[in-house]
Amino acid sequence: MSKTYNLTTPLSVDDVTQLKAGDIVYLSGIIYTARDAAHKKLIDLLDAGEQLPFDIEGSVIYFVGPTPPKPGDPIGSAGPTTSYRMDSYSPRLINEKKLRGMIGKGKRNQAVIDACVQSKAIYFGATGGAGALLARQIKSAEVIAYPELGPEAIRRLEVVDFPLTVINDTYGQDLYQIGRAQYEVK
């Protein structure tokens, strides 16, 4: 039976190990945005042994490239992008830098699922295509790295009760497989 949690970043190991695939989480605090291009730059920094532009330990990365904000708004529409494009980068951030959560939509590969088990991280799903609704839960946004990437720049977001569903938990479970098996008619 799915449970509902209210969590605040940064997330601890205890915060994430209580979660199971299918649970609902309302997340508050600071999260960081990054898509393909920004991930590539983060990994290049890791390879060069240099400091990353934000403290990753315990943090949550949101895979999103928002629309430009209208005057007076902190951000434009901001729903998740498809996450598999980050599969080749996420395990290193989880295993080496203790990234504790990712927000996106769509399937992750086995390497990401394994890293979530090994180093205790969660892959959360947000509702794709609900960019206007999700933007309401973002109270401020500030570009902190790679402004030249435009919508793909790394932003520091302040979120309140950001609605999420646990897709991959720290026990190797996958909601996409569990949920589909439950409703598949053979």
Binding site: T81, T127, A135, R136
Partner: peptide, 23 residues
């Protein structure tokens, strides 16, 4: 999820905001 998507469509319409960031 479908409830959120219906609410999203209402917000987008009432506030002239893109339905999805992927326009």
């Amino acid at each position: 999820v479908l409830r959120q998507l219906l609410e999203n469509a209402d917000i987008a319409k009432n506030e002239d905001k893109p339905l999805c960031q992927d326009t």
